[in-house]
Computed example of a mutant assay.
Amino acid sequence: MSRLNALRSRFVDAPDSLGARARARRWAWFAECFPDLGQMSVIDLGGTASAWLRAPIRPARVHIVNLDAPPADLPSWIRADVADACDLPAPIRGTTYDLVYSNAVIEHVGGHVRRQMFADAVHGLAERHWVQTPYRYFPVEPHFLFPGFQFLPLTARTEILRRWPLVHTPTSEREAARQIAMEVELLSVTEMRHYFPSSLIRFERLAGLVKSVIALKRKP
């Protein structure tokens, strides 16, 4: 088991992993798309303070909205609130930002109606955005590192999660595994174009295959 966990770390979690290199390229691409980022106010829907603290770039201000409570000791340039990004409180909805950022969140919000609410929030908060999501038809499901996992029946996905050692948070409990499997709904390019019709759709690739999809809007 420990050997297999080390394998996950090698591919996803370790500083020199394939996942870490992909994240570094994504940050560089993000900074290239928004060269004035250092003067911008950014709202991050579903992100974490730790991701921004590790990032090689720093906006002037970052406002994080997440369902999980943030750490207590945040730097002055980061603000964090516990809220649902699909149903934001009025004070957040009434604030204008320079940019909305979201990384691998829209596939977790739960169904078409809530994805549309999420996209509506993105459009309402700022005139610029960067919304990234893993691509449904990449052959390896990125959350669970299992080939074709997203195409299997729920029962099969549940049983795989109870036994597959490369899962980020393993569980042997059937109900817990089912909940984890049901939480992720990967999106197609067509769906991303539906939710972000005025955005430029860009692709991240691995070995020539589309790995993730980014809805990008750079200019008001």
Results as ranks from 00 to 15, higher is better:
residue 67 L to D: 06
residue 69 A to L: 11
residue 72 A to W: 01
residue 73 D to Q: 15
residue 74 L to I: 03
residue 76 S to P: 03
residue 76 S to Y: 07
residue 79 R to Q: 14
residue 80 A to D: 05
residue 80 A to N: 09
residue 87 D to E: 15
residue 90 A to V: 15
residue 91 P to M: 00
residue 91 P to Q: 05
residue 92 I to L: 10
residue 93 R to E: 15
residue 95 T to R: 14
residue 95 T to K: 08
residue 100 V to S: 00
residue 100 V to L: 01
residue 102 S to C: 05
residue 104 A to D: 11
residue 104 A to C: 15
residue 105 V to R: 03
residue 105 V to N: 10
residue 106 I to H: 13
residue 108 H to N: 09
residue 108 H to S: 02
residue 109 V to E: 00
residue 112 H to G: 04
residue 116 Q to N: 13
residue 118 F to G: 01
residue 121 A to L: 03
residue 121 A to G: 13
residue 122 V to I: 07
residue 124 G to I: 00
residue 125 L to W: 11
residue 126 A to H: 01
residue 127 E to T: 14
residue 127 E to R: 12
residue 128 R to V: 07
residue 128 R to L: 12
residue 129 H to I: 04
residue 130 W to P: 10
residue 130 W to N: 04
residue 130 W to L: 07
residue 131 V to E: 11
residue 135 Y to F: 11
residue 136 R to P: 01
residue 137 Y to I: 01
residue 141 E to Y: 06
residue 142 P to G: 04
residue 143 H to F: 06
residue 144 F to A: 13
residue 145 L to F: 05
residue 146 F to E: 10
residue 146 F to I: 10
residue 148 G to N: 11
residue 149 F to S: 10
residue 158 T to N: 02
residue 160 I to R: 01
residue 161 L to E: 12
residue 164 W to C: 05
residue 165 P to A: 14
residue 168 H to F: 13
residue 169 T to P: 03
residue 176 A to I: 06
residue 179 Q to F: 12
residue 180 I to M: 10
residue 183 E to L: 09
residue 184 V to L: 11
residue 188 S to R: 14
residue 192 M to F: 04
residue 193 R to F: 05
residue 199 S to G: 06
residue 200 L to I: 14
